[in-house]
Amino acid sequence: MSAFQQKILNLIKCFRRQWPLFSNSERTTVCGADCMLMALQLSMAEVNKQHCGDFTVSLSDVLETWKYLLHDKLGLSYENMKEPENYADVKKAYHAFLARTNMLDLIDIYQKFYGLGLVSEDESIAPVQLLEFISGIMNVQENNGYVLSTPSTPVNRQSQKNVKVTMLAKKCVCSYLSLLVNSKDDLSLAHILNVPDRGLGREAFTNLKHASQKRKMSIFLMATSFIRTIELGGRGCASSLFDPLRVHVKGLSNFVNFIDKLQEIVGEILNPRIAGGRILSTFFFFFFFGRSNGDPFCHFFFFFFFDLDLKIKNIIFFFFFFFTASTTGVSPA
Results as ranks from 00 to 15, higher is better:
Ser239Trp: 05
Met44His: 04
Ser175Trp: 05
Lys311Asn: 10
Val90Cys: 06
Leu200Gln: 06
Val90Ile: 15
Phe133Met: 08
Ser152Leu: 12
Gln160Arg: 14
Ile315His: 07
Thr101Trp: 09
His210Asp: 14
Glu264Asp: 13
Val147Lys: 06
Ser326Trp: 10
Arg273Ala: 11
Phe226Arg: 03
Phe226Gln: 04
Asn139Gln: 15
Lys216Gly: 00
Glu231Trp: 02
Phe255Ala: 03
Thr166Val: 10
Leu40Thr: 04
Gly32Met: 12
Asn48Thr: 01
Ile219Leu: 15
Arg235Gln: 08
Phe321Met: 06
Asn182Arg: 07
Phe318Cys: 08
Ile125Ala: 05
Val90Ser: 02
Asn314Arg: 09
Gly290Lys: 09
Asp54Pro: 00
Lys216Glu: 09
Arg291Thr: 12
Phe306Ile: 06
Asn293Cys: 09
Phe220Val: 04
Leu116Asp: 05
Glu264Phe: 03
Met103Arg: 09
Val119Ile: 13
Ile265Val: 14
Ser2Asp: 15
Leu59Ala: 11
Leu179Phe: 02
Phe22His: 02
Leu130Lys: 08
Tyr68Thr: 00
Ser218Trp: 05
Asp54Met: 09
Leu118His: 06
Gly136Ile: 05
Val140Trp: 01
Phe321Cys: 09
Phe297Cys: 07
Gly201Trp: 13
Ile134Ser: 07
Phe321Leu: 15
Met1Thr: 11
Gly233Gln: 04
Arg278Lys: 12
Gly267Arg: 05
Leu308Trp: 05
Ile230His: 03
Asn182Ser: 06
Asp260Pro: 00
Phe22Ile: 02
Phe305Cys: 04
Lys82Ile: 15
Glu203Trp: 01
Phe255Thr: 04
Phe15Leu: 12
Tyr78Leu: 06
Met81Val: 03
Lys92Leu: 07
Val57Cys: 07
Ile8Asp: 02
